[in-house]
Design a protein around this nucleic acid. Structure first.
Length: 877
DNA sequence: CATGTCACG
DNA sequence: ACGTACGTGACATGC
């Protein structure tokens, strides 16, 4: 029989500790969860480390306790329990029930007394006991069999108080702690003690006399006249104080150690509670502990490594997965393909796939429905083998993203976890990272890939059910899944990039940079690293004595907006700004892009389709969505992006003011809608409305201000943000905003409604039902809450704009096919699509593209698309 | 690996 | 009073 060990937890004290130790968190329902979370974290840690056989959480009960009859001011002057904490107690109790942990409270007694009584019983029966609390008072219970754990700082940092430890810390025996309290009091419990006696004096007295009673017996031996006087005057107070601080170890409790058997948690009960509270990391931990703490406990999987795909798996409704050596699927080694129908799961190494005609036929047959995770990666990789895949109807990665974009999705493991399936290792665990990266033995790869395919197969109905429940199934099936194929093709197609052009620009830049560098050194009187904000800060603000306008947490800010304000104070500022600009072009866009040109003279970016919180795409390795355009010198970089075939041209088409149009539609604001319907310049129109002048009387400054306000509105406006942007005072900015909102009352209503919806539901949605959860929307932390509020205003707008262009891409792809055009979609830059086509197709494409983009989604305002063609991306302006 | 900076929509 | 505009990715520096 294993040794018995009992854990006694002070529920109220731990809940308070957790509440004040952690920032206020909320779940998607707006319920505060920080105390529950801290409690759970502590619990997990302590269970793991202590492995108890018996457990109890004790609670305080009743407003008054037996202590109040001794001293009615006991615990007086305490702040009321914050409502944000009160609402969490039911959840803590619910969680403890799920853990199968016994809870107990006794009218008129405090948790301390229950714990004291039980630990006394334990000491007598020789059961090892650990008490966990946030309250140092309980250290009085420490003895050879009873250890007191006090939580510190966070919740999982715990300090153990044994008798030795108490001695070391105070020079006292544990039972003397109550004497110490009797003398010095305890402000938090409103225990008075002897006025004028603090910790130091109390300890000194107790070292000399031992107890409060002994102090008074030997009062004549107390040194110091003042102290003696204070003690004598307050004898009664000292004795009452000691009584108050004494934990009752003989409370009339109706339970004993025999009732506290702890069977261990019921994870099937615990996980739903965690899920309700949005405790993601704890769910992961719990899942991991439940299914795969030891490898042998992981679910067995039956799979075979075969040389050929079995006929039985070449049918409709099968899950498949292309296993790659790393996440860069344009270049990674393709290791093989796993397939599963739930019954049979197989892995086919890549060398056996190339010649398999039946597999190729199945893969490209649209009527053969396929399920997978990260369709885009698979498609792009298979394309390199000359294989075409069609008929993908299920993508676990995209499903997880649509369900909740805030989850970080790195691979099949994280996507499956979102739907409760664990046991798939992370790719990084299989392949390692950094220098340790390597492809393991075939068997391990095959098992890993097989687990993915099987999980994909099994999860289909769960996932589709959840998306349908949230009315997101159409978004997923009709938009994101088709888009995955299209993006995969765009990536695989790539964009031709002229090395020579970049090199030429690079050489020019190098010359200019060198010249500027010399000038800067000359003005500064020394050489230094201009690229180091730290060194630059010292030169500008210390050595040259320029005024430091803004600081960062590490020193002076040398950001462009700061330097901008110093313009004219010294010539060096202009030079630095110029140097920064050109340096950026050189390092990121010349050197960076040159490194990314493949052997086919093209750049193949990666679109992240399951990443942004708003539904936009992002582009990496390299990022082709931030190629310079605003400044002519940078814009020239675009000359390097050219058609991939002789006799072809580029065509770029962008939505005009798409976000403001979306705002007009979603807010239903009549004046904003009218402005777009009448086809006026929206910033001029806004300026006219805000400043109450006719359109022809709007000055450029008025238009500029209106433009900034329009941006601000889309971003979720704040007076401060606008004041920064326009370099005006906050008051002026606030006034602009007020006038704007007065002019467009529908917009004001919409913004308020958006925030209200987020507060109520915990999330906001786009026109096509894309969701974003905003857990901070009810936070008491001003910054967190304000940020969530601005996000609530911005995300539906930015996200709907993303929905629209995604829909346009799907439609455009169909249309190119229907029309039998050779034209190819190459890039997407949020509100812009870039194509290449044979010159002969230009007229047709130039007509189709705007038509398709403008009719992607029917709004209450027209969508307007402007398109241009040219012999390079640069020339499409 | 965090920080500051700057490129884009 | 609080200290920010929304969404991204890449690079250089410096711990």
């Amino acid at each position: 029989m294993t040794k018995q060990k009992m854990l006694l937890l002070d529920g109220n004290s731990l809940a308070y500790r957790a509440f004040f130790a952690l920032p206020l968190l909320t779940n998607d329902q707006g319920v505060h969860t920080n105390a529950v979370y801290g409690f759970a974290m502590m619990l997990e840690k302590i269970l793991k480390e202590e492995k108890p056989t018996h457990m109890l959480v004790a609670w305080d009960a009743g407003k008054t306790t037996f202590r109040h009859s001794t001293y009615k001011e006991y615990k007086g002057g305490r702040q009321k329990t914050p409502p944000e904490l009160s609402e969490q107690f039911p959840y803590i109790r619910k969680m403890l029930d799920a853990y199968n942990i016994r809870q107990y409270e006794l009218e008129s007694y405090e948790a301390d007394d229950i714990i004291g009584t039980l630990s006394r019983e334990a000491a007598q029966t020789g059961v090892e006991t650990v008490v966990i609390t946030g309250d140092k008072d309980l250290t009085q219970l420490a003895d050879d069999a009873v250890t007191i754990f006090i939580t510190r700082k966070g919740m999982t940092d715990i300090e153990a108080y044994t008798p030795d430890h108490v001695m070391e810390k105070y020079g006292l025996q544990p039972e003397q702690i109550i004497d110490m309290k009797g003398l010095m009091g305890d402000a938090s419990d409103n225990i008075p003690g002897v006025p004028g006696v603090g910790e130091k004096t109390a300890i000194k007295l107790l070292k000399q006399f031992g107890t409060v009673e002994a102090v008074y017996e030997g009062i004549d031996e107390v040194s110091g006249k003042k102290l003696k006087e204070k003690l004598t005057e307050n004898e009664e107070l000292a004795k009452i104080s000691k009584q108050l601080a004494t934990i009752n170890t003989e409370s009339p409790i109706e339970i004993g150690i025999g009732d506290l058997n702890y069977p261990g948690p019921d994870m099937e009960q615990v996980i739903p509670v965690f899920r309700e509270l949005n405790f993601r990391t704890l769910i992961e931990k719990a899942d991991g502990a439940q299914t795969a703490p030891e490898p042998e406990e992981a679910e067995e999987i039956r799979f075979e490594i075969l040389e050929q795909v079995p006929e039985a798996l070449l049918k409709s409704g099968i899950a498949f997965h292309v296993e790659l050596s790393d996440e860069h699927y344009h270049t990674a080694d393709i290791l093989g393909v796993s397939l599963s129908d739930g019954e049979e799961t197989v892995f086919i190494p890549v060398e056996n796939l190339a010649g398999d005609k039946r597999f190729a036929g199945w893969l490209s047959d649209e009527s053969m429905e396929k399920l997978t995770v990260d369709a885009k990666a698979s498609l792009a990789a298979l394309a390199r083998l000359g294989l075409k895949a069609d008929g993908i109807v299920f993508d676990l990665l995209l499903a997880a993203y649509i369900a909740n974009p805030s989850v970080s999705l790195t691979d099949a493991s994280s996507a499956a976890r979102e739907f409760g399936v664990t046991g798939i290792s992370e790719d990084q665990a299989i392949y390692g990272k950094g220098a340790k990266r390597a492809v393991p033995a075939r068997e391990a790869v095959a098992e890993h890939a097989s687990r993915k395919a099987l999980a994909v197969y099994r999860l289909r109905s769960t996932v589709e059910g959840r998306l349908k429940e949230n009315k997101q199934y159409e978004l997923y099936r009709d938009l994101e899944i088709p888009l995955a194929t299209i993006l995969g093709r765009m990536e695989a197609t790539g964009v031709r990039t002229e090395r020579g052009i970049l090199e030429k620009i690079g050489a020019d830049l190098a010359g200019k940079l060198e010249a500027i560098e010399e000038q800067i050194y000359g003005m500064a009187g020394q050489k230094f690293n201009i690229n180091s904000p730290k060194q630059l800060g010292v030169i500008l603000f210390e050595e040259m004595g320029l005024p430091a306008i803004k600081k960062t947490k590490t020193g002076y800010s040398t950001a462009a907006d700061v330097l901008e304000k110093l313009r004219g104070r010294h010539e060096i500022i202009d030079q630095i700004l110029e140097y920064r600009q050109l340096g950026k072009l050189q390092s990121t866009y010349i050197e960076g892009l040159l490194k990314e040109i493949h052997a086919d003279s093209k750049i193949h970016t990666y679109y992240q389709q399951a990443l942004t919180q708003t539904g936009r795409l992002s582009s990496t390795n390299p990022n082709l969505q931030n190629i310079p355009v605003r400044i002519e010198e940078g814009r020239k970089i675009r000359k390097a992006f050219v058609p991939s075939e002789p006799g072809w041209v580029m065509l770029a088409a962008d939505y005009s003011q798409i976000e403001l149009r979306v705002l007009a539609h979603m807010s239903g604001d009549e004046r904003l809608i009218a402005a777009f319907r009448e086809g006026e310049d929206i910033h001029t129109r806004t300026a006219g409305d805000v400043f109450h002048v006719e359109a022809q009387d709007v000055t450029p400054d008025m238009r500029r201000a209106a433009k900034a306000v329009n941006f601000g509105i889309v971003y979720g406006i704040s007076d401060y943000g606008l004041s920064q942007n326009l370099n005006i005072t906050r008051k002026e900015a606030a006034e602009f905003i007020d006038r704007y909102l007065a002019s467009f009352p529908g917009v004001k209503q919409y913004m308020d409604a958006s925030v209200a919806e987020a507060k109520e539901k915990g999330f906001v949605t786009t026109l096509l039902n894309r969701r974003r959860y905003l857990p901070d929307i009810n936070s008491r932390n001003f910054n967190l809450r304000s940020f969530a509020e601005r996000t609530a205003m911005n995300t539906p707008i930015q996200g709907t704009a993303a929905d629209i262009i995604k829909k346009a891409m799907v439609e455009m792809d169909k249309r190119l096919e229907q029309e039998g055009l050779q034209a190819r979609m190459l890039l997407q830059v949020h509100d812009e699509l870039i194509f290449e086509c044979p010159k002969e197709e230009l007229d047709k494409l130039g007509q189709i593209v705007p038509e398709v983009m403008e009719s992607a989604l029917e709004l209450d305002v027209p969508l307007l698309v402007e398109s241009e063609s040219g012999s390079s991306w640069y020339d499409t302006k």
